[in-house]
Design a protein around this nucleic acid. Structure first.
Length: 235
DNA sequence: TACCAGGTCCTCG
DNA sequence: CGAGGACATGGT
C-alpha cells in the first residue's frame, strides 16, 4: 500500500530534489545531489533547525544571510553574539530560539567532535539519533532529518504532514515512533526512497491534503479512507 | 484579517 | 504521559 501511494505521488509530482545546499561561490541553496563536503553537511543541519515550523522560503532566506556573512562555520557561530545571529536569521521566525539552537549544535560539535561534523555523522543511525536528540533544540523530526538528509542514512522522517495524511488515509496513530515503524516495516530500507517519499508527502500536504483537503485534486484519493467517507456521505 | 508554514521545549495536572 | 502555551516572520 505505501509503495503504491509512493508511486502515485511520484508520478503526479515528480522528483522533489531535497535537500538543497549552497555551492562554493554562491549564496542560494540549490539541489545538487545533497551535501558533498563538511560545509554543506553543516548547512543542511542548520537548515533543518531554521526550517522548524516555518516555510522553507523563510528558512532559505536565513541561509542566504548566513552565507553572506560566512557563518556556515562552527567557530564563527560560536563567536558571534546571540543578538547579532538572531538578526541575521530573522526571516526564519523564532529567531532568538533558533540562534540558541544553532549555537547549541555547534557547541556540541566543538566539544565532542573537534568541530568536525563528518565525525558526528559517521555514527550509525541509532547512535547518531541519540546524540542529536540530546542537544537542546533538536527533537525527533529534526534529528531524523539530519540523519536522512545530512548523513544520508535511511530513516523515515515523520512530520505534521505525514501524520495528517496517514491519519486520513486510515492509519489512526499519532505517536512518532509508531508512524516511523509503519514506513520502516513496509518499505525497502532505502535512503533514496525515504528522501523522496518524505518530500512528496510534504508536497501533498502543503498543496492538497491541507487542513481543508482538496480531495478532487488528490492523486491518492482512491487509497484514502477520508475520501471514501466523504464520498459515501455525499452519495 | 486570520491562518499557516518541512517543531521543540517547558510547565502543569 | 498529554495538553497547552511560548516562540515570530512572511506569504496568501
Amino acid at each position: 500500500m505505501l509503495e503504491i501511494i509512493y508511486n502515485k505521488l511520484y508520478s503526479h509530482f515528480g522528483p522533489q530534489h531535497w535537500w538543497p545546499v549552497t555551492e562554493k561561490g554562491k549564496l542560494n541553496p540549490e539541489y545538487s545531489g545533497g551535501p558533498k563536503n563538511e560545509r554543506q553537511q553543516l548547512e543542511v543541519c542548520f537548515g533543518t533547525i531554521l526550517a522548524q515550523n516555518t516555510s522553507w522560503k523563510n528558512a532559505e532566506k536565513a541561509i542566504v544571510e548566513l552565507n553572506k556573512n560566512n557563518l556556515i562555520n562552527i567557530k564563527k557561530i560560536l563567536k558571534i553574539k546571540n543578538k547579532k545571529l538572531a538578526q541575521i536569521i530573522k526571516s526564519s521566525g523564532y529567531y532568538n530560539q533558533k540562534a540558541k539552537k544553532l549555537k547549541n549544535f555547534c557547541d556540541f560539535l566543538s566539544k565532542n567532535y573537534d568541530g568536525k561534523i563528518s565525525l558526528l555523522l559517521n555514527n550509525n543511525a541509532e547512535e547518531l539519533k541519540k546524540k542529536l536528540i540530546s542537544i537542546n533544540g533538536i527533537g525527533q523530526e529534526t534529528a531524523d532529518s539530519i540523519i536522512l538528509y545530512a548523513a544520508k542514512k535511511p530513516v523515515f522522517v515523520v512530520d505534521a504532514y505525514t501524520k495528517r495524511i496517514l491519519n486520513r488515509i486510515g492509519y489512526k496513530e499519532t505517536e512518532y515512533n509508531k508512524l516511523q515503524t509503519l514506513f520502516a516495516k513496509n518499505l525497502p530500507n532505502s535512503e533514496r526512497l525515504f528522501n523522496e517519499y518524505h518530500a512528496l508527502l510534504v508536497e501533498l500536504g502543503k498543496g492538497i491534503c491541507k487542513k481543508q483537503p482538496l480531495c478532487g485534486k488528490c492523486p491518492v484519493s482512491r487509497c484514502c479512507g477520508y475520501y471514501e467517507a466523504v464520498s459515501l456521505k455525499r452519495d
